[in-house]
C-alpha cells in the first residue's frame, strides 16, 4: 500500500511509467473504462478547490469507479474538531483510495500515516501538489516530446508557488535544463530550491523582466500570486499584478514555445493569449485528469 504525498515519492522510472499509461489511456480509453469497477475514491477537500476535486472525480468515473465526496469542511466532522488521523482511519473503512486537500502543510502525510488505503495529496497549503506536477509533466511530454535540453521560464510567485518547486524537482532529474526564474524581489525562489538546481548540474538565471529571456524559452510556466498565501493583504495587493502575459510580450518568443499555467488564472495571462496555438494551459487541465487516472491505477495496483 503506497501513498503519494510529494512528487519525490515517485522515482523517475515510475514517473515515466505513469506518463506511458496516461498516453495509453488517451489512445485507448475503452481499455480502461472498467479497470476500477467496484472501487471507491474518497475526495476529502478541507479547502475550496473546484478543478482538482472535479478532475479526481472525473478520473475515477472514467475508470469505472465511484466517488465519495466531502467538499465542505464546514459541514464535516473536522468542524467538530476531529483530527486528520481519525478522519483518515474512518474514511479508510469506506473507500479504496483517498485524495486529500488540506490548508495545513503536512496534513495529507498525517492521513497517509494513519489510513489503511493509499492517500494522494491533492494539495496541502503552499507545500506540495504532486498531481499538478504530473499534469505539467504529461503536458511537457506531449508538447515537447522530451524532458532534456529545455529552457524553462517560471514566472510569478516563485516563493510560495508549490507547483513551481515540485516542477523544478521533477525536471532536475533530467539533463541540461536551464531555468529562467522570473519574479519580483519578494517572491524569488527559496535558496534550497536553487541549491537543488545547482546540485543536479543544471543552471538558472534570475530576472525581474518577463521579456528579457523570452526569445530563449521552450516553456513559459506562468503562476498566479495567491491571496491565500499572504498574511498581509497590503503585500498581496502590491505584488498581484507584477506580471501579465500579453500577445505583445510574446512577439519575440519562439514559434514552438509552450505556455503553461496550473490555473486558475486571475489576470496574469491575458485572455487574448488563449487563441495563440502556443497556449497549452487548457490542455494541461485535461492532461491532469489522465495523469490522475494513471496514478489511481498505479496505487490501486489494478493494472
Amino acid at each position: 500500500m503506497r501513498s503519494v504525498i510529494d512528487i519525490k515519492d515517485l522515482s523517475t522510472k515510475e514517473l515515466e511509467e505513469i506518463i506511458a499509461v496516461a498516453e495509453d489511456i488517451i489512445e485507448n480509453p475503452d481499455k480502461y473504462a472498467h479497470k476500477c469497477d467496484g472501487k471507491k475514491l474518497a475526495t476529502l477537500f478541507f479547502e475550496p478547490s473546484t478543478r482538482t476535486r472535479l478532475s479526481f472525480e472525473a478520473a475515477m468515473y472514467e475508470l469505472g469507479g465511484h466517488v465519495l465526496s466531502m467538499s465542505d469542511a464546514g459541514s464535516s466532522s473536522a468542524a467538530k474538531g476531529e483530527s486528520v488521523a481519525d478522519t483518515a482511519k474512518t474514511v479508510s473503512c469506506y473507500a479504496d483510495i483517498i485524495a486529500m486537500r488540506h490548508p495545513k502543510e503536512g496534513a495529507p502525510l498525517v492521513a497517509a500515516m494513519n489510513a489503511s488505503v493509499p492517500v494522494i495529496n491533492a494539495g496541502d497549503g503552499g507545500h506540495n501538489h504532486p498531481t499538478q506536477t504530473l499534469a505539467d509533466l504529461l503536458t511537457i511530454h506531449r508538447e515537447k516530446g522530451r524532458f532534456d535540453n529545455l529552457t524553462v521560464g517560471l514566472c510569478g510567485d516563485l516563493k510560495f508557488g508549490r507547483t513551481v518547486h515540485s516542477l523544478i524537482n521533477a525536471l532536475t532529474r533530467y539533463t541540461n535544463i536551464k531555468f529562467v526564474l522570473i519574479s519580483p524581489e519578494e517572491l524569488k525562489v527559496p535558496s534550497y530550491v536553487k541549491n537543488e538546481i545547482k546540485e543536479c548540474g543544471h543552471s538558472y538565471v534570475q530576472t525581474k523582466d518577463l521579456s528579457e529571456f523570452m526569445p530563449e524559452l521552450d516553456i513559459l510556466y506562468m503562476t498566479r500570486v495567491q491571496r491565500e498565501r499572504f498574511f498581509n493583504e497590503e503585500d498581496y495587493l502590491r505584488l498581484k499584478d507584477s506580471y501579465i502575459l500579453t500577445p505583445e510580450k510574446l512577439a519575440t518568443a519562439k514559434s514552438d514555445l509552450s505556455i503553461m499555467h496550473p490555473l486558475p488564472r486571475v489576470n496574469e495571462i491575458s485572455v487574448a493569449v488563449d487563441d495563440d496555438p502556443r497556449a497549452c494551459y487548457f490542455k494541461q487541465v485535461l492532461n491532469g485528469k489522465y495523469m490522475r487516472m494513471s496514478l489511481i491505477l498505479k496505487l490501486l495496483e489494478v493494472l
Binding site: A85, P103, K104, E105, G106, A107, L109, V110, G126
Partner: peptide, 13 residues
C-alpha cells in the same frame, strides 16, 4: 513553528 504546519493545529501529533 511554521504557522501553516499541521502540527500547529493538531497538537497531539
Amino acid at each position: 513553528k511554521n504557522p501553516r504546519c499541521i502540527t500547529t493545529t493538531e497538537q497531539e501529533l
